[in-house]
Nucleic acid binder design. Structure first.
Length: 573
RNA sequence: CGGGGUGUAGCGCAGCUGGCUAGCGCGCAGCGUUUGGGACGCUGAGGUCGGAGGUUCAAAUCCUCUCACCCCGACCA
């Protein structure tokens, strides 16, 4: 391809809205363009990258036993009402009305429509197991798109669904997908880690995410360097410290004028935070609940939400709390009636805590659970803290950030039961099909690849997903020796099956080299009067500093073998 | 939805205490000189100043409403 013919220009300056590295670089490289908030166009270079990623994904899905189909984006809302997920998705669901007044949904995911199809074709256990997938557009009206391609409202996703007759079958399908996903990231030149994930309010027992470590990532990851335990913060657990044993002392009260927060109260009473109980009120599906936790911990709202089995959970406002006749800042579960109390198990880890007295400017001393109050539920609802002990081995837990580039779920029978997707087993009885769901965002993967592979000059594409392998850079092309050599090499490379982008513009060397760095193709080959003097060309790998001169004779063949050698070294095969 | 911010040429920005022909840099077109890490000179094209309404002799500039976009939070299979 001639650069002069390529649609999409590089830019020196970054559009103002771009904050995230991948967003800036992809915009500057002329690869993507924003059309609306969270909606992007892909220009030719990006399109080639996307195609390469899709090819790898498709290959791994096929190898794992998946069969590709294409199901519609446009889906009747009834399907979503049947599964009940129209409510779970709520505002995120893009809906529209056709000319007959019929409501349709732009699919945010495709469990329903796949299940509906499978239901008509699968009656017997002999039809199982089954794995179907597609690479298709998804639409989600995200509250806030962000980070360029990292969180968008329209995106391409590979989604595969597994259908099995029993748990063992599901386990096998799940393992196959976990392996396929790891192959995909390895082949794409990306270093993704598999972590335990929250499976959401609806659906399955087990779920994992694949996370690319990156500062710009939205997900917090908890990991243990000792034993390899890794989990999304939403799901992560840690061992909680136990406080020193002491006798239960009698309940008392203390005057704490104007002291409301844990900091103020502990400062005033000269106490450690861990000797207090923190009371936090939430609106859980319209109902006020009290969560209580030891003062040195914070509440993990995902865990709380799951424990309460609600779909909406928001922090209660002062007004909400006052309306219930409670004193914000001095609240505690003691003597509270008619409010659901859920406690973190840390409240059982010590004795004689300080807690609110439920009257202004007073706190209680020596509060003990269950002597002074009982919780309706006691379980782990705490956020893991940096350095907390690992739940597996006791090692120190670390917290880092990452981008979610894949998510796999054991869905179970939630959808199949609601949509009536049953099969007949060998003994003739009916069972709901057991499902799994496995998604990977293609565009996000591209952006994440940039987040992970760049330097101050631009992108450094892993060769397997690079839009072209070679940036052929003739300089002073007015020189016929240079232009002839470049043209010969270009043809030889193309004939050898090596995709090449030729910078045939009459720009100065500096401009060309800077664009080469920005676009990030793996290998730059420069031909100039200086190099052809010795019948040579200069080769420089994007991810290396130094360059080398090699004879033009037989260069295409050599380049081919270099590229092959590198790709086998990278993929570790 | 709450908080903060921005809309002026393809991109980045200035102008905004009301003042006349709306500027600068990059990019773009033409010509010439250059050229191993974002060259230079000359000439030129390109703008309903996000939109609507208002105040005024006069609005990019002041007022009201509105739309879009970005960031933080809420939210997020």
């Amino acid at each position: 391809m001639l650069l002069s013919q390529l649609f999409g220009k590089t830019q020196k300056e970054t559009p103002r809205e771009a904050d995230t590295i991948s967003h800036r670089l992809l915009l500057r490289a002329g690869m993507i363009e924003q059309v609306a908030s969270g909606v992007y166009s892909y220009l030719p270079l990006a399109q080639r990258i996307i195609r390469s990623i899709e090819a790898i994904v498709r290959d791994e899905m096929n190898k794992a036993g998946g069969q590709e189909v294409t199901l519609p984006v446009l889906q009747p809302i009834e399907l979503w009402q049947k599964s009940g997920r129209d409510r779970a998705f709520g505002e995120s669901l893009f809906t529209l009305t056709d000319r007959k007044g019929q409501s349709l949904v732009l699919g945010p995911t495709h469990e329903e429509v796949f299940t509906e199809m499978v239901k008509r074709h699968v009656q017997s256990y002999r039809d199982l197991p089954l794995m179907l997938y597609q690479i298709q557009s998804k639409f989600r009206d995200e509250p806030r798109p962000r980070g360029g391609l990292l969180r968008v409202r329209e995106f391409t996703m590979k989604d595969l669904y597994s259908f099995d007759q029993d748990e063992e079958g599901l386990d096998q399908s799940y393992q196959k997908m976990a392996r396929a996903y790891q192959n995909i990231y390895r082949r794409s030149g990306l270093n993704a880690v598999m972590v335990e994930a929250d499976s959401g309010a609806i659906g399955g027992k087990e779920s994992h995410e694949f996370i690319l470590p990156a500062e710009s990532g939205e997900d917090e990851i908890v990991s243990c360097t000792l034993c390899g335990y890794a989990a999304n913060m939403e799901k992560a657990a840690a061992v909680k410290s136990r406080l020193e044993e002491e006798e239960e002392k009698p309940l008392g009260e203390v005057f704490t004028p104007g002291k409301k927060t844990i900091e103020e109260v502990t400062g005033f009473l000269n106490l450690e935070k861990e000797k207090t109980l923190k009371s936090v009120f939430y609106n859980a599906d319209e109902r006020l609940v009290l969560a209580i936790i030891r003062g040195d911990y914070e509440i993990n709202e995902t865990k709380l939400k799951n424990a309460l089995k609600v779909s909406r959970l928001t922090l209660a406002s002062h007004e909400d709390i006052l309306r219930a006749g409670i004193v914000p800042g001095s609240a505690s579960p003691i003597g509270l009636k008619e409010i659901l109390v859920i406690a973190d198990d840390s409240v059982l880890s010590g004795r004689n805590f300080v807690a609110g007295a439920n009257r202004p400017d007073h706190h209680l001393l020596n509060v003990n659970c269950p002597r002074d109050f009982e919780a309706d539920l006691v379980l782990d609802i705490a956020r893991v803290r940096e350095g907390d002990p690992c739940p597996r081995c006791g090692g120190n837990l670390k917290i880092s950030r990452g981008i979610e580039v894949g998510h796999i779920f054991k869905l179970g029978t939630f959808i199949s039961e609601r949509l009536g997707a049953y099969f007949t087993d060998a003994s003739g009885s009916q069972h709901p099909i057991i499902m799994g769901s496995y998604g990977i965002g293609i565009g996000r993967l591209m952006a994440a690849a940039v987040e992970q592979n760049h330097d101050e000059n631009g992108i450094i594409w892993p060769a397997s997903i690079a839009p072209y392998q070679v940036y052929l850079c003739p300089i002073f092309a007015g020189n016929t020796g240079v232009s002839d050599a470049a043209e010969n090499l270009y043809h030889a490379l193309e004939e050898g099956g090596i995709s090449t982008l030729v910078d045939d513009r009459s720009e100065s060397p500096g401009v060309k080299f800077n664009d080469a760095d920005l676009l990030g193709l793996p290998l730059r080959i420069t031909i100039s009067p200086r190099t052809i003097e010795n019948r040579c060309a200069e080769l420089k790998w994007r991810d290396e500093k130094s360059s080398s001169l090699l004879p033009l004779d037989g260069l295409a063949e050599k380049v081919k073998s270099f590229l092959q050698a590198r790709s086998t070294a990278k993929s570790g095969t």
